[in-house]
Design a protein around this nucleic acid. Structure first.
Lengths: 349, 349
DNA sequence: CTGAAAGCGCTAACAC
DNA sequence: GTGTTAGCGCTTTCAG
């Protein structure tokens, strides 16, 4: 730690600036000089002091990824995609967890970072449209979610509403008429966040198809983990509420629901069909495999990093840019009619 | 960004040092002065320049968590535990992903960080004992894993070997005699890493109990995700190799294995019993629920951060400290004999 | 209780 | 091709 650039310079018989030039790939350096410098760096075990470099440069090269948690598979996969995209651009990703606490979301995007950050990718789960509008963003920011505002903030729009509607269409086209929605939020401002948008899509499709919505099938669950999907189904079964399909607002909820159905002896997909959202890795490996709405996570990550990078570099448009990701329902066993394979499975003990 | 501490000072009618004192909680400041300073900070929208502070302080407050991936549930849960522990000590966690590439592991712990870090928590998956011994650690480091060396590096020891042995004892005591090991590595140096240690424990218990080990039941799988557990079982079944128990080297492998067994019509736990490792959240919600070895993840995270913090603060012992975590087999349906609940489940379609 | 000066390590601008 | 100078914004002396 005590070895400075000037130490390297002295040992190599050059000035500090030359060492700096070598480190930063400045082209016009004699090969022999470069070699001597690199040797000196190696023998002394020198590492640049990034704080000094950052101070001088006025940038840190750090972008903050503000997400609620990392154990939720969707956010884990998003994190890895964002990190990969950032790495190719020489950016470092700092994960900041909100743990689904609105005050943390607000504090962080308002500038309360533990380190200096050049930009922020923000996946809100608590802040609604109202809160977002009244926020003061302390750095270039890309918000992930449905469109919320124009202005100096870029937006990568997730097809929450359209995806949810397609999930319902998928279920209805396979005969479902009493479809449960698992993951509804009843928070203030929740209409603006993911849960609200997915519920909207759910209602949209019902309306468009002329299928009635049953209030007792709108299952409130603020946290979207397996346990909550499981509990929701348990409550439906205990109450004796009839249902023949479930649209779960993410895959974790859906897998929890699937588990509870199987344990309770409800055949899936024969009696109840289940669709999730996000198309995470685990959807393909559940039993039965889970039909899920793919919302273009990889594309979202790349677009978000690209937009942020552009804005950090000063090339961003003055007004916010809006990018919309594709979506698609990936059909699997949890919604497919029984066939030969299914029959085989039914014979299990 | 253009607003500096001196701007705040000017507006508040004090010197920069006083502003600094207010920000750093220096106690002897007149209340009225503090208020004026805080007001000025607020109206100007001032944020400290962390690069400058870090440069001056000679520390960054960043600790690096070096892990292979974050989507693997064990590492996701570890990440959240480490972040929580770091936050209480005012440390920022920088996640650095190795993606299971040895060169990346080596480069990172040798000092190739994108930002200055005060210390490193390193969970190796590729580096064996040999590589670790020959590494030059560029910062205070805590290695997570079985004991590997003494010296200026602290060690949080995971009960890999003992935990694996207990898993096998659990299976044998329930009647298993042909137990498969899923997740074996055949890498150079692999004997020193997690896979090798869990295999050792597997062999230990067989030897201690006088149960023969069958080579064809040692299933090589370098990546420990569901798909690989699934594939391993598929291969066993296709080859017609008889087996009545599986010890999977982590929960993801076990859940993949479970999936493949169920899909293939092999009753669990009646015909084959399955044990995983790590006791992640998802183990409790699989169908059937998964028996797993709990290796004290939360405790490991807290100890690792505490050790690192102590060493960063200069209070560390000269020699490496070694902490051993507890372990325990958490019994669930995947290894329990059929009872009323199980019978009910068997009646499913 | 507050202020003045010096310097952390690096690099942009310019001189040679 | 390489060296000199100056300053990024903060905080640690040490006065006052």
């Amino acid at each position: 730690m005590a070895v400075r650039m000037s130490d390297v310079a002295q040992r190599a018989g050059v000035s500090a600036k030359t060492v700096s030039n070598v480190l930063n790939g400045y082209p016009h350096i004699r090969a022999e000089t470069r070699t001597r410098v690199l040797e000196a760096i190696d023998t002394l075990g020198y590492h640049v002091n990034v704080s000094a470099r950052n101070l001088r440069a006025g940038r840190t090269g750090i972008i903050s990824l503000v997400i609620p948690e990392v154990t939720e598979p969707y956010f884990g996969e998003l994190t890895e995609s964002v990190m990969a995209a950032a790495e190719t651009r020489g950016l470092t990703v700092l994960i900041e967890l909100t743990r689904h606490v609105m005050d943390r979301e607000i504090a962080i995007v308002s500038g309360n970072h533990p380190q200096g950050v050049d930009g922020v990718i923000f996946a809100p789960t608590m802040c609604g449209e109202q809160e977002l509008r009244s926020l003061t963003f302390s750095a270039p920011t890309v918000v992930l979610g449905e469109r919320m505002f124009s202005g100096p903030v870029d937006n990568v729009v997730m097809p929450n509403r359209a995806g949810a509607a397609d999930a319902v269409r998928h279920l209805v086209s396979r005969g479902c008429r009493r479809i449960g929605a698992v993951g509804v939020h009843r928070h203030r401002g929740a209409g603006a966040v993911t849960a609200g948008l997915r519920l909207q899509g759910f209602l949209d499709a019902h309306e468009a198809l002329g299928v009635p919505v049953h209030d007792e099938l709108l299952l409130t669950t603020h946290v979207w983990r397996r346990a909550n999907g499981s509990t929701a189904v348990r409550q439906l079964l205990d109450a004796g509420t009839p249902f023949d399909g479930l649209f779960c607002f993410n895959d974790s909820l859906a897998l929890g629901a699937l588990h509870e159905l199987v344990v309770s002896g409800v055949p899936v997909p024969e009696q109840v069909k289940v669709v999730g959202f996000d198309d995470t890795d685990e959807a393909a490996y559940s039993t039965p495999a889970l039909t899920s709405v793919s919302a273009g996570r990889e594309e979202i990550a790349q677009q978000a990093v690209a937009l942020l990078h552009r804005r950090i570099s000063g090339d961003g448009d003055t007004d916010g840019v809006e990018v919309v990701a594709d979506h698609q329902v990936i059909g699997r066993r949890s919604t497919e009619a029984v066939d030969a394979t299914a029959a085989g499975q039914d014979e299990l003990g």
